[in-house]
Design a protein around this nucleic acid. Structure first.
Lengths: 184, 184
DNA sequence: ACCTGAACACCGTTCAAGT
DNA sequence: ACCTGAACACCGTTCAAGT
């Protein structure tokens, strides 16, 4: 609030005439951003449509790093992003899930998306701080006697990290949700 | 740091003789907790073993709400939890994934787990604050003309929220990762 | 070697006062 | 109706000084 006030050439308290508190300001800002998320061209095939819609959601959220924090704070939603949510649940239904399953499915992809964004940002932050990749160091010096598989995986972590890991998990998650639906 | 100092009946700065900064203190604390995560009895069947190991990881992390924040901060790992990580990657390999795929698989379940914990904590926090469930309100008053599927899902959100949503997503994710592995 | 207190540079927010 | 400044109650951390 204080930094914003400086940017506005006003006092910190002037903001409080227009907004209840910092949280409310962030929610308003979030909805502005959501309104501006580009509407992607979605494939007709339901599974691909689903994946493309989730990807658009993730990319929209990834635009500004603070967005994830606001969403992680709790029970928040940007009404202007509901059309994307509609695409996702409709995609699940088109893939054969019941309404109850589609609700659970949405929750699952949402959880995965938030997790991916948070971890991605954490890695970027640490890289920007110039700290050495501590996790990689631990994972590449693991005792092959006690932890044989982990030791064998040592060469693969750096690659796994560098790759965009959203699509891998998302595709698996969606395929699993479709396959696990009792309707099949 | 200041609050801890009060609890220790010392000055805030006394802590800095023993610890570089707040981050380091949290990492040390994290490893203490990780050392104390109970070793669950794991089923022999690889898929179930994998799910049980992930569940143990999630439950261990869910014990203290601040743990997720520390982990989300970035590139952190508790060396005393490597045995659980070993179980998970070994489970993937036993299910037929290559080493590279097992690394990606671990990343995916890790992302999902962090996301689930963060969202769960957010919901709890909002509930403790006594705020009304804003998201539920939005989702149950959606325009059925513009967002038909979302409107049809309205009765299911409260239920989806109340249920433990970790197993649903985790099982789907793991099944998807196993099914998507090119080896099959 | 260990601890202290004052100080610095921040936060979000309340409250009384100004135009 | 809108804005201001002082103040309150916090943070993490530095630095010089104490035992």
């Amino acid at each position: 609030m204080r930094r914003l006030a400086v940017e506005l050439d006003s006092s910190a308290m002037a903001i409080y005439r227009h907004v209840r508190d910092k949280d409310q300001l962030l929610v308003l800002l979030l909805d502005r951003l959501a309104a501006v998320v580009p509407r992607p061209r979605l494939p007709r095939e339901p599974r691909r449509r689903l994946i493309t819609a989730c990807r658009a959601m993730r990319d929209g959220l990834a635009e500004y790093p603070w967005v994830v924090d606001v969403l992680a704070q709790g029970d928040l939603i940007a009404p202007s992003i509901l059309w994307l949510m509609e695409e996702i649940v409709a995609g699940f239904v088109a893939c054969g899930l019941s309404h109850a399953e589609a609700a659970d499915g949405y929750r699952a992809v949402w959880q995965f998306t938030v997790g991916e964004l948070i971890i991605k940002r954490g890695l970027e932050r640490m890289a920007n701080l110039g700290r050495p990749p501590y996790v990689l160091e631990v994972l590449t010096t693991v005792d092959p006697e006690r932890l044989p598989t982990l030791a064998a995986l040592a060469p693969h972590w750096a690659g796994a990290r560098a790759r965009d890991s959203y699509d891998i998990g998302l595709t698996a998650l969606i395929d699993g949700l479709i396959a696990d639906a009792p309707g099949r």
